[in-house]
Amino acid sequence: MTTMVAFEKINEAKANLDDIYNQPDPRAYFQELKKLDYSIPNNAKPVFQKLIADLKRQRHHTIHVLDIGCSYGVNSALLKHDLSMDDLYEHWNGEMLADATPEEVIQRDREFFASLQEPKDLEIIGIDQSRNAIACAEETGLLNEGLAINLETEPLPAAAKEGLAPVDLVISTGCVGYVTEKSFERLLPAVTRDEQPWIANFVLRMFPFDAIEETLSEWGYTTEKLHGQTFAQRQFASVEEQEQVLEHLVKRGIDPTGKESEGQLLAEFYLSRPAKEAVAVPLDQLVLA
């Protein structure tokens, strides 16, 4: 069984939220995810901030981040600005903006984010298969560049490769499961042309990471998992979703007692770095210090 087929079977357990990911503005996305207390970008933010700070100390230049599965630029909003998910939920309040056109929402967002302080030494590129989400994130200024592409089914365009060469950090917060090692195989030749980037993935516990880890290993990476710590992604959308996820976890030999059994999808954190860098500073020391 291929990784993608295996992931598709696991994804059948999850609520289908596809309809909110390709709207012309983020209102439906945030309105629906607020109901589920979607919080993984918030929980991932301090980890990413520590990685970015360490990379700045080492590399002494603007840090370029590539966000895989970036949707409307949520991680970028949190990393570039002093914002939380609650701030974004309030900003894109569906009721308050009910009568606005998508064009009016985007213009409002452009002005709002332009008014906030933004670091001069951080640029964020986003990849997502949702063309509307990418276009919106670019128009509002959350992404410095966006690529609307599904790397599971199509190669990286030649024109995009040059722009990805400076990438210092690749991040994802929940896209593994839709994304397999195939996407990384297509990205790695582009993002490793200069210095090798660090690759930071928050992965739901029901999805195995071994195939991606093996692919990264072939490119000289050592992958570490942050043991003993999980990160809430969101609440289960239904009892049925929870029951099916618990079943998949048990099949993988993972005990959900006291974790997913309490009502939330949980992710674990994996960091892949060039072998020498991983040996120099262990993961626990890097993100928990």
Rank of each mutant, 00 (worst) to 15 (best):
S130W: 08
W198A: 01
L286T: 01
L36V: 09
S238G: 11
I127W: 08
F202L: 12
G163R: 01
E241Q: 06
S238H: 02
E268G: 02
T140M: 10
E139D: 13
D210A: 09
H248L: 04
T222P: 01
A77V: 01
G163F: 06
A100F: 14
N43F: 09
A98L: 10
T223S: 15
H64G: 05
A232Q: 07
E90F: 12
A158M: 11
E8L: 12
D67E: 05
A275K: 13
A200E: 00
N22M: 14
V74W: 08
A280F: 04
L17A: 13
S272H: 03
Q235N: 15
V179G: 00
Y270D: 07
L164I: 08
G73A: 13
E240K: 01
F113A: 08
S130T: 06
I134N: 10
L88S: 07
G126T: 11
T222A: 12
A114C: 07
N150R: 10
S130E: 04
R193K: 15
E260Y: 01
E181Y: 08
L55P: 03
Y72Q: 12
A28R: 09
V105Q: 08
H60G: 09
L55Y: 10
T230R: 04
E181I: 04
G141N: 15
F269T: 00
D67H: 06
F30Q: 10
Y221E: 02
Y21S: 10
V105K: 07
I124K: 03
A211D: 09
P46D: 04
L266Y: 02
E181P: 04
H227R: 14
L36H: 05
V74L: 09
A98F: 12
V5F: 12
